[in-house]
Nucleic acid binder design. Structure first.
Lengths: 336, 336
DNA sequence: TTGAAAGCGATACCAC
DNA sequence: GTGGTATCGCTTTCAA
C-alpha cells in the first residue's frame, strides 16, 4: 500500500555518503561547507527517492515542530475564518505551518491541552469567547507560548485586538452624518470586552455630534440573529431612525423584525453593522458595514507568536484600526 | 518558561519501576498483567508529575499518529464547516484526533503533501472543488489512505456524497405542490458532479408532475451571489413563477435581483434553495430550503477512513439522502 | 509480574 | 569537507 518511504539513511547510502552529510545538505545547513559535487549528488538521490523528512523524528530530535496551533470557537464565522487565513499566510512566510483546531464549547481545556501538551505545536494562537476565569485556567495548562486574538485577558501579555471602539464610532459618524439623531445600538454580550468597546465608541460618536447618550436606545443583542431580533423589537417603541448593530448577524436579525413591523429600510430606519463579510451583500437591503482588519489580526498574531518563539519579548500591539465604512443600501438620510 | 515536561523515564524512575512497566500501565495495555499496587503507584506518579506522552516519540515508534487530516477548500462555508464538525465527532469517538487544513486554491497539492508525506496524519478526508485531473494527481502523491467528501472521482474507491438529485427533486416537488408550473433552476458549476445531479433531480421532479423540461428555464449560477444574480436576471424574461437554486448563496443573489426588479417574493415568484444553514433565516424573505446531511457526511467519511486504516475494505456508501424541506417565507402558492 | 535493550528517523556535536 | 555516534521519548520483543 503506502510505498515504503525513503529515509535519510536510504538517501545517504544510495549517495554513498554518511547520514550526517546528507542531513546537512538536505536541511540547507550553510554553517558547514560541503563540496558542490557531493551536494548535487545527494540532492539528486533525494529527489529520485522522493525523500521527505519524517517530521516526527525531526521534531523529537529538535524539540520543535515549526508548527503553530490556532484555536477558534467556531469555523463558520467570517471573523475567525479570516483570522485563520491571515495567520496561515503569515505563518507560511515565517516558515511555519498552521494547525487549525476548532473547539466546541465545553471541549475548551481539552483542545488547548491536546495541542500544546503533546508536542504537536510550538505555540498557540487562541480565540475564545469564554469567560476570563475559564480561559485563564485553560491557558495555564498550555505549556507553550500563546497569543490571544480578538480579546484581552488581564495578565496575558500578548494579544491582538481590533479597535472596536473606533469602528463603532465610525459607524455612528456615518449615521449622524446622514442626519440621524435617534441612533440606537444593538450591543454584544453584556460582559464582553469588544461589546464594551463598541458601546463606548457609540457613545463617543454621539457625543462628538452633540447628541446626548440615552440608555433607552441601547439593547443587548448578543451575537445571534434571534438576539438581534429581540433587541430590535425592544427598541421599536423608542422610534429610532437609525441603528448600529455590533455584528452582521444581529443586524440581520434586526432587519427581519423591521421588515415584519413594516418599517422600510432605509426610508424609515437606517441599519449599519460592524465587520464586513460577504453575507452583508446577501442581506436585503444590502448592509452598510465598517470593515474590520480581521485577516490582519491573524497575521499580526502569528508574527507576534513567532517572534516570541524566537526569544524576543515583543511590545504589546495597539488595537488594529478599523477599515473603511462601506455604504450600502441599508443606510440613507434621516426621515423627515 | 515551559516547565521541563516530565518524560516516561521520569515517571518510571520516581515510581521505582522500569520504563517498560510504566509504559504498559500508562498505555492501558491489558495484554500483560501488572500488579495492582504497582499500577496504582505508577498512575499516581504520572498524575503528580503531570506526565503527558510525547506524541512525536510515540508516533515515531509506532508509525501511527492516531490523527486524521481533513482538507477543505474553504472554512467559512457552512457545508464544509458542518462536515468538519461531523468528522471531528466521529473521529473522537473512534479514538482519533482531527487536524483541519484549509487549502487555498493553488496550494492544492502542497497541503495534501504536507500532511500526508510528513507523517503527521494516518489518513485524509478530502473535500475539493478542483477538476478531476488536478485532484487525481494531488492525491496520487498522498501516501496515506483517503476518503473523498462531497464528490466522486473515477477510480477513487472511497467517497461520501449527498444525494443532491433527491434533494433537488424534493425542492421541485414542494414548488410544484404549491401549483407552480414554470419552475426555473439556477444550476451549479457547469462541470460539477453535484451540479449535474441537481439538474437531474430538477428534471425528475418536473417530469413526475407531468411538466416538460424546458432548457430555457435553466441558467448556470455557479456558487456565488453574483452568479446567482446574473443567472436570475437572465431568466426573468422567461417569467418563471418559482425558482430552485442549487445553493443558498446563489439563491441570495437571485433574490437581490428579484427585489431590484420589483418582483415580490413569494407573491410573484417563489424561491427555494438546497442545503440548510443559519444564513437561510437571515435572508429576506427567509429562504425555504432542503436540509442536507452535511454533518453526517463528515461522520461517515471519518468512520470509513478509520475502518480502512484498520485494514478493512469498506463497501462504497450510497449517497446520503436529503433531510426535510424547511418551508419558510420565500415560497408560496403560484400566482393567478 | 517486571526488567533490559533494541530501535523508530532524524539532528548535532565532535573527530579526523 | 565528511564520517561516527549519542540522543530525543517512547514502544516492544525477549529474558528473567
Amino acid at each position: 500500500m503506502a510505498s515504503p518511504r525513503a529515509t535519510l539513511a536510504d538517501v545517504a547510502q544510495t549517495a554513498g555518503v554518511d547520514m550526517s552529510t546528507a542531513s546537512r545538505v538536505l536541511r540547507g545547513d550553510v554553517s558547514q561547507r560541503v563540496r558542490e559535487e557531493t551536494r548535487a549528488r545527494i540532492l539528486k538521490v533525494a529527489e529520485d527517492l522522493a525523500y521527505r523528512p519524517n517530521s516526527l523524528a525531526r521534531g523529537l530530535r529538535t524539540a520543535r515542530t515549526d508548527t503553530l496551533g490556532i484555536v477558534v470557537p467556531q469555523l463558520d464565522n467570517p471573523v475567525f475564518a479570516a483570522a485563520i487565513r491571515g495567520a496561515e499566510q503569515a505563518a507560511a512566510e515565517l516558515g511555519y505551518s498552521l494547525l487549525i483546531s476548532h473547539r466546541e464549547p465545553g471541549t475548551t481545556a481539552t483542545t488547548i491541552a491536546k495541542l500544546s501538551q503533546t508536542n504537536r505545536v510550538d505555540g498557540l494562537l487562541v480565540a475564545s469567547l469564554d469567560d476570563d476565569e475559564v480561559l485563564r485556567s485553560d491557558l495555564a495548562a498550555a505549556h507553550v507560548p500563546f497569543v490571544l486574538m480578538n480579546r484581552i485577558l488581564p495578565g496575558a501579555p500578548l494579544s491582538v485586538v481590533l479597535d472596536s471602539r473606533a469602528a463603532a464610532r465610525r459607524g455612528v459618524e456615518h449615521l449622524v452624518g446622514l442626519g440621524h439623531r435617534r441612533v440606537a445600538h444593538l450591543s454584544g454580550r453584556a460582559q464582553g470586552f469588544n461589546a464594551a468597546q463598541r458601546l463606548e465608541g457609540y457613545r463617543e460618536g454621539l457625543e462628538a455630534a452633540g447628541i446626548a447618550f440615552d440608555p433607552v436606545l441601547v439593547a443587548t443583542a448578543g451575537y445571534t440573529a434571534e438576539g438581534g431580533a429581540r433587541a430590535m423589537a425592544e427598541l421599536l417603541p423608542q422610534r429610532p431612525t437609525a441603528v448600529l448593530a455590533a455584528t452582521l448577524v444581529s443586524a440581520a436579525g434586526a432587519m427581519s423584525v423591521l421588515h415584519a413591523a413594516g418599517w422600510r429600510i432605509p426610508q424609515d430606519i437606517s441599519v449599519a453593522g460592524l465587520h464586513d463579510a460577504p453575507v452583508a451583500r446577501l442581506l436585503y437591503p444590502s448592509l452598510t458595514t465598517v470593515m474590520m482588519p480581521t485577516e490582519e489580526m491573524g497575521r499580526v498574531a502569528a508574527s507576534l507568536l513567532v517572534r516570541s518563539l524566537a526569544g524576543e519579548h515583543p511590545d504589546p500591539v495597539p488595537p488594529l484600526p478599523p477599515g473603511d465604512l462601506i455604504p450600502r443600501a441599508s443606510t440613507g438620510p434621516a426621515p423627515g
